[in-house]
């Protein structure tokens, strides 16, 4: 049974990897990390960041809202300490970068590309662009285009923008990223959301709004993967609400070549291992020899 997939030139033994921010070497012991297709550490920023005020998470039906604020110790600590922790697993590491400006994205991409364990770059273009009133880079196709083009000019590694779902047309942004040279697309980051405690009348998140994740978002993400796959030809990494193997297969049928698992790991620390086993069971049951036979193979009656 062949589970290997190709993500913009990056060959993975299998399509399952963590979503940025929902994984760390702290999970060693709960999960056999070596079994993953790739490692995606938490997004890194150039300078240390304290993160947002608490509460930073709240649960909702079939999901959670978070606004952590990318608490980070800065790029030097990341290069020396965090990335080094992943060397022993001998897996592709997809480094997730968050920055305040296009130039900062390029500067960080260049530095991180020089680290021997890093195999690809994920660009968190859903973070606020401080040069444009804090509006996310990924909400504007021209800015997304310039950002990807700039980063591509400073690195030879595959570049994977993580799109924001909080847009009118995700296809438009996806096309701009592909034209700028993106090697793959991550669909997608969390959905902007809010919850209020009716007894205290206060927002349940310190930052007032945050990103929704978990099973609640999965149908929205499946739709977006399908739409993006219709208009682009680069591989898609699906991300949003996958809890089990069936969810991962659904995402692959919609058009994803690989699947990220985030929130599920908080509830079931070994979720990714279990998802892999369930994918294999499905393939056996449906006599599928290569996972590539399933990518984008949703049947549409026209």
């Amino acid at each position: 049974m062949d589970l290997s997939v190709n993500i913009g030139g990056l060959k993975l033994e299998n399509p399952i990897m963590p979503a940025s921010g929902a994984f760390g070497y702290e999970m060693d012991g709960f999960l056999d990390i070596k079994k993953l297709g790739a490692i995606v550490p938490k997004s890194i920023t150039k300078y240390p960041r304290p993160g947002n005020k608490t509460p930073r998470v709240c649960e909702v039906t079939s999901g959670m809202i978070n606004s952590i604020g990318i608490q980070s110790k800065g790029i030097d600590y990341y290069l020396k300490n965090i990335l080094e922790q992943y060397r022993k697993y001998n897996l592709p590491v997809i480094s997730s970068i968050s920055a305040d400006s296009i130039n900062e994205f390029a500067e960080m991409a260049e530095i991180i590309s020089g680290h021997p364990v890093v195999s690809a770059l994920e660009l968190n273009i859903s973070c606020p662009n401080l040069e444009h009133d804090g509006k996310s880079f990924g909400m504007d196709s021209d800015i997304s285009y310039s950002l990807i083009q700039k980063v591509k000019s400073v690195t030879d590694l595959p570049v994977i923008p993580k799109l924001t779902p909080n847009v009118t047309s995700i296809q438009e942004i996806a096309i701009a990223c592909e034209e700028a040279g993106a090697d793959a697309l991550n669909v997608a980051n969390t959905l902007l959301a809010m919850a209020i405690d009716i007894h205290t009348r206060k927002p349940k998140i310190g930052n007032i709004v945050g990103g929704l994740s978990g099973p609640a978002v999965k149908p929205v993400i499946i739709r977006m993967i399908y739409q993006v796959n219709q208009v682009t030809s680069v591989p898609i990494i699906g991300c949003g609400g996958v809890m089990n193997g069936e969810d991962a297969i659904e995402m692959i049928l919609a058009g994803a070549s690989a699947v990220q698992v985030g929130t599920a790991s908080f509830i079931y620390p070994n979720a990714m291992e279990k998802i892999l086993d369930e994918i294999k069971e499905y393939m056996e049951q449906h006599q599928i020899s290569s996972i590539n036979e399933l990518i984008g193979k949703v049947l549409i009656n026209e």
Binding site: A22, T54, P55, V57, N66, F266
Partner: peptide, 15 residues
């Protein structure tokens, strides 16, 4: 005591 999400040191919710 703090509200937590992952409990494993991964998500940085309970700081």
């Amino acid at each position: 005591e703090e509200h937590m999400a992952c409990g494993m040191g991964v998500c940085f919710a309970c700081v």
